[in-house]
Amino acid sequence: MSAADVWRRWLGGRGRSLGAGVLILASLAVGRVITDRLPDAESVIEKPIERRGVIGTPIALRIGDVTVTEVTGATSWASVSEGKRTQGVWLAASIDLLPSRRESGLSYAAVRDSSGHVWELGRGESTCKAPIAGVPMHCQVLIELPRRPISNAELVLRWTNFDDRFDDQAVLPLTLDQATIDTWAGTEGPIKVPLATLGDS
């Protein structure tokens, strides 16, 4: 029996195992290449739905109607329990919230621009929490911003910052040009941040 026959017999005995192993590894490698090349569908599908509006008009979210009534700014704010200063500016948005369900409120507030910058609550505050379904609430959000104009700025308000998948959020355009920022930077404040109030008044 020649050496080739011996090796052929050896491979024949173990060929199935080796072949199966090679096929499995090849399939895994090809599958990995395909999934790496294809775009991620989940991040597109799960993105929160944006409901657009302007200051003064109600925006209907699944957690209730959100109306931003006023946007101001200064370099400091003070609530009943604490106060904060900044080297930048504080944006303060006054909000009327009419909750449509028990689990409601606005724990996520951010300013974003067209370059991908996002300024979230951070050291800021939201008093739009623990509302009562059907009872109007008047509250505020405060966001810290740098002392420079922000082009194509938008205010984003959402129920929670923990999980935004399949949720909806209110988006409003903001004017944060040099004049506005300079005015806010020159206002020492402090912006008064009382507790949220309930009712129609």
């Binding site: 300024w119 979230e120 609550l121 050291r123 911003l145």
Partner: peptide, 18 residues
């Protein structure tokens, strides 16, 4: 902590120096 007002720094926003 932020030195200016002795408050906790739990987050850091873009383009601001503290």
């Amino acid at each position: 902590y932020a030195v200016e007002d002795s408050t906790l720094m739990t987050a850091l926003v873009p383009d601001l120096t503290y």
